[in-house]
């Protein structure tokens, strides 16, 4: 979280709304531990990461949907255990749970 504060504060100074995504759980092997965080500005700028680059694109989509009001804040799960054949997975085969929310707290 510490490494993304400067970006978050800069976006907020610009008047942008911000969404924060944090790894809150991990099954099996995962590249980043719980607490790994990324932030997305409403213009789509990104700071930080929640994996080794495998799911960041999908997290940005979720974050923008949460900011845009088309999706509620909540936990999103990424991993090969998903049923959808084309679900976003982790190359290491693990599953991560990411909590995505607007920074309104």
């Amino acid at each position: 979280m510490k490494e993304i504060l400067n970006d978050i504060d800069r976006w907020r100074t610009q008047g942008q709304r911000v969404a924060v995504a944090r790894v809150v759980g991990l099954d099996g092997s995962g590249p980043r531990d719980p607490g790994a965080a990324m932030a997305v500005s409403e213009n789509g700028e990104v700071a930080g990461s929640v994996s080794g680059g495998c799911v960041e694109g999908a997290v940005v989509t979720e974050a923008l949907a949460v900011l845009g009001g088309t999706k509620e804040r909540g936990v999103v799960t990424f991993g090969y255990s998903d049923d959808e054949a084309f679900a976003v997975g982790l190359t290491c085969g693990g599953t991560i749970h990411v909590f995505v929310e607007p920074l309104d707290w």
């Binding site: 979280m1 510490k2 504060l5 978050i8 944090r22 804040r73 909540g74 909590f99």
Partner: peptide, 27 residues
């Protein structure tokens, strides 16, 4: 809460953040 977290992290002060991520009062 974020403002206090921001200040604590920049000052390298230990702090714990609890977030409801499921159930009543999510967020």
């Amino acid at each position: 809460v974020y403002d206090a977290l921001d200040v604590a992290l920049r000052a390298d002060e230990p702090v714990a953040l609890a977030s409801v991520i499921g159930g009543k009062g999510i967020g």
